[in-house]
């Protein structure tokens, strides 16, 4: 809803706004939808001026069509694929996270969603030397864990510090701050892209989206759904307009047949372009750190591709530390 007011466009004067208000034309939509000729007669305004204002307002507020050929050209030059640093996940994603898209990791507690997110962030910052924005909504992001992963990759402290500096972490714990954070992000991604010395942001992660959205849903109210869609729209716009890869995590529920499915309901299920379901691999004799990743939604690969990976494998060198010590105990037991 865009209210008509003086100065909104050249030619829209105070008198004109007042005259239009007498006919209950208060917003741009009202003006554009009404018949200019009839309106000019009713409000005794100049038809020519009204048509001119209508045309300018339309041009200001509409989204412009882009030719498919131009869009393809732009896409070819701007799309990049960010490797996650995890071979199994890369294979499912057709070689990595695509910029301009939302990818979702769904899984129950302890299936390695946060671990994967942190390692992806580390990989993008260290290997690909790109900036990452990490939005942490459940307190799962741990700087020392990040450093451990880096130490396993390189012993050079300068490189470690450089990589850490490329990851910016935001802590938000409710949906309103998340929205606020995302809106600021859009402004900040724009300014960062403009100043070339820092390099542009290539990946945004939200771990987890369900932690802040799920508590808003339910009952006979529409606000929660609306907020969820607004979060989704912000993420999509960041992904699309600034050509950023977005990675979100989600919890899981069971459907009527007892099958695992991603949480947040039918409406959210349409949002991510690609979805990977993480599960513990519970065949007998398998180490407890073994996880299976199943592709449950994709427009590039056949669905239900399955890969196994070991959470510990990527951190094999730093097993002695207390963070992965727990897992090591499990494996030896």
């Amino acid at each position: 809803m865009v209210l008509l007011r003086e100065g909104l466009c050249p030619g829209l004067t105070v008198d004109m706004v007042k005259a239009l208000q007498t006919e209950d034309i208060r917003t741009v939509e009202d003006l554009v939808s009404s018949d200019s000729e009839e309106l000019a007669q009713k409000c005794s305004l100049s038809y020519k001026a009204l048509v001119a204002v209508r045309r300018v307002l339309l041009a200001q507020h509409t989204a412009f069509p882009v030719s498919g050929a131009d869009l393809y050209e732009e896409l070819l030059s701007s799309t990049s694929i960010l490797s996650t640093g995890n071979h199994s996940v890369d294979k499912l994603l057709d070689s990595g996270l695509y910029t301009g898209e939302i990818t979702e990791l769904a899984g129950g507690p302890g299936t390695g969603k946060t671990q994967l997110c942190v390692s992806v962030a580390m990989n993008i910052a260290h290997e690909l030397k790109q900036n990452v924005l990490y939005i942490d909504t459940n307190g799962g992001m741990c700087a020392s864990r990040l450093l451990q992963m880096l130490q396993a990759k390189t012993t050079n402290t300068v490189e470690q510090m450089n990589a850490l500096q490329r990851i910016r972490v935001f802590r938000v714990f409710d949906v309103f701050s998340l929205l606020c954070c995302l809106q600021n992000l859009r402004a900040c991604v724009r300014t960062v892209s403009a100043s070339s010395n820092q390099g542009s942001v290539k990946a945004v992660m939200v771990d987890s989206v369900s932690a802040v959205v799920f508590c808003m849903l339910g009952g006979k109210q529409t606000e929660g759904m609306s907020l969820m869609i607004q979060v989704a729209t912000e993420l999509k716009m960041i992904a699309k307009d600034y050509n950023v890869a977005v990675l979100v995590t989600n919890h899981v529920t069971r459907d009527g047949n007892g099958q695992l499915k991603a949480g947040l309901g039918q409406t959210w299920s349409h949002i991510p372009r690609t979805r990977i379901l993480l599960q513990r691999a519970n065949r007998p004799g398998a180490p407890t750190s073994l996880r299976t990743a199943t592709l449950t939604k994709s427009s590039r690969q056949p669905c239900y591709l399955m890969e196994e990976f070991d959470l510990c494998e990527q951190s094999a060198e730093e097993l002695k530390s207390r963070f992965s010590g727990k897992r090591k105990l499990d494996t030896t037991a």
């Binding site: 989204a63 412009f64 069509p65 882009v66 030719s67 498919g68 050929a69 869009l71 393809y72 699309k240």
Partner: peptide, 9 residues
């Protein structure tokens, strides 16, 4: 072919 397609977001 793509020139015959326009996309609006």
């Amino acid at each position: 072919c793509l020139r015959r397609l326009s996309v609006v977001h």
